[in-house]
């Protein structure tokens, strides 16, 4: 009765395979593209058999792109560094600000606290384009346009609400009694926050930080408008491959591979950490 039939097993395997192919194929295809020249990519019919080339990666790393129209300077490596700097700094600041705020919202209900929390979340509802124009104007007045500082500030719109809401949920899941127990044992509220609440919400904070990082990394619109060439992240920098002499698919593919790698690595690493952290669980004792 509890043993599944062979037919069921086969059907399940087929279904799983289809899902995996559906999601993995584009990534696989881009990975292949990154090792091909534009000519082989655009060949009809497309073929999985080709002579792999590292020319795309070489172009990205040296910053010299040779096209039919001549040699172009590209700033991919600089874009990559910008992406890393912007995302890491934004998430770090959002964590420093957001985690204590999330704790406050979770543990101290005061008049209007729910409204404030909701207002902060609502920043994520607004389409970026809606706020972009006034924001650009303000930033120009304040001299913040085209500065890392300004960009990181705007990135808080993406990171802070996310961290606040996810981490708040984790804090709320910690039994209040566990924190009371530490207080009553003679420790200050701040020690309780540091020694009990933070470690227990650790997996949640990691998950929120990771998500915020991915959103920050993938941001396009804010950076497009507010950053000049030398401060652009990869998402915007990739536009350089759309050249007057055509779209450089090979380079785009290798740029994607390079830019996806950090987030992918981070996700894989944190996934392990998350599973471990969640099974620690047993908050209820």
């Amino acid at each position: 009765m509890e043993t599944t039939s062979t037919l069921e097993k086969i059907l399940r395997l087929i279904a799983l395979t289809l899902v995996v192919i559906f999601f993995m194929f584009p990534i696989f295809w881009i990975f292949l593209m990154s090792f091909q020249t534009n000519e082989t990519i655009l060949a009809i019919p497309p073929s999985v058999i080709f002579t792999p080339t590292l020319s795309n990666y070489a172009a990205l790393i040296t910053g010299k792109l040779t096209t039919a129209a001549g040699t172009l300077d590209i700033a991919f490596m600089r874009n990559l560094m910008n992406s890393i700097f912007l995302s890491v700094t934004s998430v770090a600041i959002a964590l420093v600000l957001g985690v204590p705020a999330a704790y406050a919202f979770a543990r101290h209900k005061f008049k209007g606290s729910e409204d404030i929390a909701f207002t902060l979340l609502s920043f994520r509802f607004a389409p970026p384009l809606l706020v972009l124009l006034p924001l650009t104007q303000y930033f120009q007045w304040l001299g913040l346009a085209d500065t890392y500082f300004g960009l990181i500030w705007v990135y808080q719109l993406i990171c802070l609400p996310l961290i606040l809401w996810i981490v708040r949920g984790y804090f709320e899941d910690i039994s209040a009694d566990v924190e009371y127990a530490y207080r009553i044992a003679g420790h200050s509220w701040f020690a309780t926050f540091r020694k009990i609440a933070l470690p227990l919400a650790g997996p949640g904070i990691a998950a929120a930080g990771l998500l915020a990082f991915i959103f920050a990394w993938n941001n396009f619109v804010f950076a497009l408008v507010l950053a000049s060439a030398d401060k652009q992240p990869v998402t915007v920098g990739a536009l350089a491959f759309v050249t007057s002499s055509g779209i450089q698919y090979g380079q785009i593919a290798s740029a994607i591979v390079l830019s996806v790698t950090p987030t992918l690595a981070l996700a894989l690493y944190a996934q392990r950490y998350l599973v471990e952290g969640l099974s620690l669980g047993a908050v209820k004792g």
């Binding site: 009694d177 566990v178 009371y180 127990a181 009553i184 044992a185 509220w189 209820k284």
Partner: peptide, 18 residues
């Protein structure tokens, strides 16, 4: 404050630090 009242407390759900 709670930490200065000189109290020991045990909880129904144990409330151990996991």
């Amino acid at each position: 404050d709670a930490e200065h009242r000189g109290i020991g407390m045990a909880f129904q759900n144990f409330a151990l630090f996991p």
